[in-house]
Design a protein around this nucleic acid. Structure first.
Length: 770
DNA sequence: CAGTGAGCGAGCTTCCGCTTGACTT
């Protein structure tokens, strides 16, 4: 039996450490937290001074039993969870849940997994820091209280099954507010003038007027003034400059860079990184630290000097600048710097390469560059043309890695031909182009992560889950949206001709950007209006400050929570009692024909428009659902009136109506209970005629017949159908597999009902039960 | 399965942060 039990959070880490420590140690993993607040109710005894009620995660019962047994038999238990607030709490929960004997328990920490670091930690044991544990309890309880009191307010006032929380609600707010800025944005127009020039040797280069010009007339004046004339070099400056490498990756910068360079989604990046970590290729991927261990610095140095030579190496230690960083781990880096490539699938290889390059580059020399600026003048105009050149004198880290930016890539400053002051310069072509100011960019997943990190909201382990939560709740959608065509003016001077042309470009096209939904906007507005304090961007920073004071022993955690909860709970009660249901109602105007009011709002089945008031007794209002490409925020009166024209009744066939409509899944024609989609034919439901509709319906009836084995009318209608994967039972939109022992051809209604009732519950439900 | 949109009530939903597998179409 091993003398020592050492517990860490991650199993991969446990494996590595076990190798360092030899046979006197058995190293196990807690797999993160082992206990959490009880899930029913709030899990906090509010009247009892906010006493938390912890339960062991049902999935962890077996693990806890195993650890308990190992701990009992060991002479010493070493709690080696991460060196941060959560890690300290995990150790404390372990001590409590395993009923560890304090005399036989030691707390140790290391923020890098190297043999010397681990051995050193064993020499410097301490006890559990209860203040830090209390800070974690405060964090946990506050998040629970906020989440479990706010969410039910939404169920009552907006829609069931919605959610709100300290992190997710602020994430949604960022996206909603950005969208509003974009909706309110009015582009302004201006002109930029640039040109191609030739020096006396006939070498070509580009130059531009840096100022934005206000009008076409002004541009025209400039072009006319310099027509047929030469420029001269007014000024020429050469300045040395340097570029420094970016620090090695943290979770957030890895997500951003993988998004830009590899087009990975945030969760995709984390999945691939997890595999690299488990395979031992990289260090831990959930970290907010840019720190590199001594071992890593040496490894990088050796790899760089042997690969590129001594002068390419420069040792650097970076310091973290993100708010609330806890730095329990190293930066993300390769475990072996000499391994430039790995085997594995394409995604793994590419992500590894990115991590390797970034970490290697961070320990390389600055790039030395020479920046040249040339000014060209012509006395007939008040502006100078400016040409910029850049020459790399020593490439340094640029040899392996160039960091990308979110902004549009600036035009590459290339090498300028040599020139002297006073030299006569001819133009080849000078172009004045109309430009438009651009609205602030929509968030991509990675940009949102960056923003959250800057505000100190969320942690490396939660960035990816937060983004999927706000999408799962339907607050936000990640979408591709087509742009619009826009025309612009171009004036071009070539030779002695100034030509004017009108050109078109596509603007505003978006790919993989986050858009708020109607429900996202309504929930956000409701929360901002009623819970400004929680939704405030500074809220997390404020409470983090309090948590720090708990950690330093300055204040008591339950008192801090009490202070927060009193006013918060009062606001919850107040809102429940006094605030109206939030429907996001927007008045669009009046129907010109009837004079009735038209509004857009969220109804029981989603976003809708309504014609006429609800309270009118005789004249019932008309309703219509919005199409998926429409939203309450942007729909116009005209679009709304169009919606009321559907469904269109086209005629009758065998006593049943033939009609055209747009449903949740697109446009369709309908005859009784037969639905035929218009998607494939591209027909417009507003224009499709009776004959076209009947043809589509007959085709559909025929196709349905071919796969129908039996139909049982009545409520509900049950069909037995032939599918691609064999026969199945269809009820509404739900399908059921026919179990063994039943003959599809011979099923009767009762047997079908039996199969439906006995069908196993849906996957999502069984998953939650576990 | 084909027109809905109000409110009631039972019983359900929900938070953030630590960690990995075990599930099928």
């Amino acid at each position: 039996m091993a003398k020592n039990l050492l517990i860490v959070e991650s199993p991969a880490k446990a494996g590595t450490i076990e190798k360092y420590l030899g046979k006197d140690f058995v190293v196990k993993s807690s797999y993160g937290h082992i206990r959490d607040l009880e899930k029913k109710e709030t899990g906090v005894k509010i009247e009892d001074g906010f006493e938390p009620v912890y339960v062991i995660d049902p999935d962890k019962k077996k693990l806890v039993t195993e650890l308990k047994k190992l701990a009992k038999d060991a002479e010493m238990v070493w709690l080696a969870t991460d060196e941060d607030r959560e890690g300290e709490a995990i150790s404390w929960h372990l001590a409590e849940a395993l009923k560890l004997n304090p005399d036989k328990t030691k707390r140790i920490t290391f923020n890098e997994i190297t043999k010397p670091a681990v051995l050193r930690s064993l020499e410097n044991p301490r006890t559990i820091n209860n203040n830090l544990v209390d800070a974690q309890q405060a964090r946990r309880v506050l998040d629970r209280l906020v989440g479990f009191e706010l969410s039910p307010v939404l169920w009552k006032k907006v829609k069931p099954a919605l959610s709100a929380g300290r992190v997710q609600s602020v994430a949604v707010r960022l996206i909603v507010e950005r969208e509003r800025e974009i909706l309110d944005f009015k582009p302004e127009t201006y002109f930029k003038v640039n040109g191609k020039f030739k020096n006396t040797k006939g070498e070509l280069f580009k130059a531009e007027i840096s100022d934005k010009l206000n009008s076409e007339a002004e541009v025209k004046e400039i072009l006319e003034a310099v027509k047929g004339d030469h420029f001269s070099v007014k000024d020429l400056q050469v300045k040395p400059g340097k570029k420094t490498p970016a620090p090695p990756f943290t979770t957030s910068t890895l997500q951003q860079e993988a998004s830009r360079k590899l087009s990975f989604s945030v969760s995709q990046t984390m999945g691939v990184a997890q595999k690299l970590y488990e395979a031992g290729y990289i260090t831990y991927m959930r970290t907010d630290s840019v720190n590199l261990s001594e071992t890593a610095l040496n490894g990088a140095r050796d790899a760089i000097t042997s690969e590129f030579g001594n002068k390419y190496h420069k040792q650097r230690q970076y310091t973290s600048k993100s708010k609330g960083a806890q730095e329990a781990h190293e930066a993300i880096r390769p475990t072996d710097f000499t391994r430039a490539e790995i085997s594995g699938d394409n995604q793994a290889q590419r992500l590894y390469e990115l991590i390797w390059k970034r970490a290697i580059a961070s320990q390389m020399s600055d790039a030395e560059i020479e920046r040249t600026t040339v000014l060209l003048e012509n006395n007939a105009i008040n502006y100078d043309f400016r040409a910029k050149g850049e020459v790399i004198k020593f490439d340094g880290f640029l040899k392996v890695y160039i960091e990308s930016t979110d902004d549009e890539p600036a035009e590459e400053a290339g090498i300028l031909p040599s020139m002297t002051i006073g030299e006569s310069i001819a133009y080849d072509v000078i172009t004045g182009t109309q430009r438009f100011t651009h609205h602030p960019p929509r968030y991509s997943e990675a940009r949102l992560v960056k923003k959250l990190e800057e505000q100190g909201i969320g942690r490396p382990s939660t960035y990816a889950p937060t983004i999927s939560t706000v999408q799962k709740r339907g607050y936000v959608v990640k979408e591709e949206r087509p742009g619009k065509e826009r025309s612009y003016i171009q004036l071009e001077l070539a030779g002695k001709e100034v030509a004017r042309s009108q050109k078109t470009e596509i603007t505003g096209a978006e790919k993989g950007k986050l858009f708020p939904t109607d429900i996202g906007m309504v929930v956000n507005d409701f929360l901002v209006e009623n819970f400004e304090g929680i939704l405030d961007y500074g809220f997390t920073a404020e409470v983090e400050d309090q948590f720090d004071r708990i950690a330093s022993g300055e204040i008591q955690w339950k008192k801090m929570i009490e202070k927060f909860y009193g006013p918060f709970h009062e606001t919850v009660e107040n809102t429940l009692e006094h605030s109206e249901r939030a429907t996001g109602e927007r008045h669009l105007g009046e129907d010109p024909k009837t004079g009735k009011e038209v509004i857009a709002r969220i109804g029981r089945y989603g976003p809708m428009v309504q014609l006429g008031k609800t309270d009118e007794e005789e004249d019932k209002p008309q309703f219509a659902s919005l199409r998926s490409d429409q939203s309450i925020a942007t729909i116009t009166l005209e679009d709304a009136l169009e919606l009321f024209k559907l469904p269109r009744v086209l005629g009758e066939l065998e006593g049943k109506k033939v009609q055209a409509n747009i449903g949740r899944f697109g446009p369709y024609v309908q005859w009784g209970s037969t639905f035929a989609s218009l998607k494939a034919s591209g027909l417009d439901p507003m224009e499709v005629d009776y004959d076209q509709a009947v043809e589509l319906i007959q085709e559909k009836v025929k196709a349905d017949k071919e796969k129908t084995i039996n139909i049982f009318d009545g409520k509900p209608v049950i069909k037995v159908l032939k599918g691609r994967y064999g026969p199945y039972i269809a009820v509404g939109r739900k399908n059921f597999k026919i179990p063994k022992g039943f003959e599809p051809e011979e099923l009767d209604r009762a047997q079908c009902e039996q199969i439906i009732n006995e069908a196993p519950a849906k996957k999502t439900k069984t998953k939650k039960k576990k």
